[in-house]
């Protein structure tokens, strides 16, 4: 019991979100969203298209500015940071995995250059070491070492997505934002990616916020789940509890709408 007490008592939230609101004119992007994310936790955000989950993610990641509310990362007020600080955070402590790998990769740059970019961005100036790290990360995301000088355009969709993950994780971020990371991939490729992500989360102690509409993905990946509808969080809790014993009408509808395989 002592270990658990240690986990629950001494750890501070890595990310603390309070009353986050974003409007597009009269339309609500997301409204009054609050949650804590602890180190090593994976939070899933589900909801249909237009539910505000992507708006929320981009506000959290600093791609859009929230109108109201507070975001504290590791005790620091993210919204009060200068852009320099925030962008520095964005390429060191934070990572963002786009749904479409083309949005997160430099398609004209080799796989090794893609992985090495974040290292060079934070000051790495030794070619041999940069290449060594890139090689190591390609291995961790199961891309053959001899593909290091190939451009991502020569890769399959699943490989591109794994390359994007390597590119993001090479600077050992603590917080990873993922926007539908398995969307647009074949089911078999999805499974491989999910397994990879689970392993990385466990081994690196990553905190992850993952937006998806795929309930199977969150069941396997997320510890906790937030259900959004019309910009509001209608329900949140332990992932399997929310999916198996949904309390809110919308969640019940969402869960019962999934086709059984």
């Amino acid at each position: 019991m002592t270990l658990m007490e240690k986990m629950t008592a001494t750890t501070q939230p890595l990310l603390k979100v309070d009353g986050l609101t974003k409007r597009y004119g009269p339309r609500i992007g997301c409204l009054d969203v609050s949650f804590d994310l602890y180190p090593g936790e994976v939070l899933g955000i589900v909801g249909e298209s237009g539910s505000g989950k992507s708006t929320l993610l981009s506000c959290l990641a600093g791609h859009q500015r929230a109108d109201l509310g507070r975001i504290a990362y590791d005790g620091r007020d993210v919204l009060a940071m200068s852009e320099t600080e925030r962008r520095r955070l964005g390429r060191t402590d934070w990572a963002y995995v786009h749904q479409n790998p083309r949005d997160g990769l430099r398609m004209g740059v080799s796989a090794g250059g893609n992985v090495g970019e974040r290292l060079m961005a934070v000051g790495a100036r030794h070619y041999g070491e940069i290449r060594g790290k890139a090689q190591d990360w390609l291995g961790r995301v199961e891309i053959a070492g001899d593909r290091i000088d190939d451009r991502p355009s020569a890769f399959s969709g699943g490989m591109q997505q794994r390359l994007q993950i390597a590119r993001n994780l090479v600077t050992s971020p603590r917080l990873v934002f993922m926007d539908e990371p398995t969307g647009g991939l074949d089911v078999s490729v999805q499974a491989r990616l999910l397994d990879l992500l689970r392993g990385l989360v466990r081994d690196l102690g990553l905190s992850v916020i993952i937006v998806t509409h795929d309930l199977a993905v969150v069941r396997l990946l997320a510890h906790r789940l937030m259900v959004m509808k019309s910009g509001r969080v209608v329900e949140q809790g332990l992932t399997d509890q929310v999916l198996d014993d949904p309390q809110h009408a919308y969640t019940q509808l969402l869960v019962s709408s999934v086709l059984q395989v």
Binding site: Y38, H223, G237
Partner: peptide, 10 residues
């Protein structure tokens, strides 16, 4: 939830 996660883990 995180207490339950810890409980299930340990």
């Amino acid at each position: 939830p995180r207490q339950i996660i810890a409980l299930r883990r340990e």
